[in-house]
Design a binder for these strands. Structure first.
Lengths: 145, 145
DNA sequence: GTTAATTCCTATGTTATAGTTAGGATATAG
DNA sequence: CTATATCCTAACTATAACATAGGAATTAAC
């Protein structure tokens, strides 16, 4: 599977923050109850998103997280990359350590690069605002793991 | 990773059959030497492709495999699905056993379905003929795992 | 017919990753 | 002070990826 639970939960976390934004920090406990994801797991995911600058934390009692910008300014691609790292569909396109010693001779690499491009084009073209559009209070996904 | 070695090797196997087609069966041993993939692993992959009807085997000495149709009649999507099964980027879109009990309430499912669509559109739009286009004898990928 | 080469079938092992839980340190509102 | 949070990172478990292995069945060539 290309996108692990971490990436999917990150998107739900961000959507939850966007939907429930009333001007104060939202705790992971609240998100946990709404989204049915353990606080401990959410902590790790929030850590990634925070390090990327996409959410801002307040520590201590009454603490929690908020978005750092408006929902329409996040692409889903950014959110997923913050938690999943590289979204390459195949190992041999990994930027960091391209382990394929013969990429220049490979018949199939152009195809994979094209697929990678198609994926990025799609995910970068959808914003967090698009994701939460049309959501009402009953549309908070609690069971989708 | 979305596409495992099996799917990538399947595409290279098919490309090898297409490139080296001179009217007789090609053994996995030959493909193994050109592509640097073990015969034993190729056997499993060829089994999948054969069951899908994409290649035809001849058993015994001088046996091997051939394509069952011209390269431009295979989409890469078909080849990948034959070995990888479902190419859904997320678990909750798996057709067979959609384990998400609240898909109808899920905020993010539309996004994932859109991504799935973008992936399928791309991979179904490229043929095996496209993949081998421009290949000469030096362009057989031997090291790309 | 015997041999060598090949596909066919499926079991087994090994390694890596996903998915999660856990513990305790640090910070802050009340 | 206490309760409630985030923060940091280690550890565990289950699953899947990635192969290797063994032997049966089939066939061309001699």
């Amino acid at each position: 599977m290309m996108i692990s639970t971490k990436g999917r939960y990150a998107l739900r976390l961000m959507a939850d923050l966007a939907l429930n934004d009333v001007g104060e920090s939202i705790s992971l406990k609240d998100i946990s109850l709404r989204q049915d994801i353990s606080v401990k797991y959410l902590e790790q995911i929030a850590g990634n998103l925070s390090k990327a600058g996409y959410i801002k934390s307040s520590r201590g009692a009454k603490g929690g997280y908020r978005l750092t910008k408006e929902p329409q300014k996040y692409s889903v691609g950014d959110i997923l990359r913050a938690t999943e790292g590289n979204l390459s569909p195949v190992a041999c396109l990994n930027d960091e350590e391209n382990i394929c010693p013969r990429a220049d001779q490979c018949l199939t690499i152009d195809f994979w690069q094209g697929l990678y491009g198609a994926i990025n084009t799609y995910i970068d073209g959808v914003t967090l605002a698009d994701v939460i559009k049309g959501a009402d209070n009953s549309q908070k996904c609690n069971g989708c793991k």
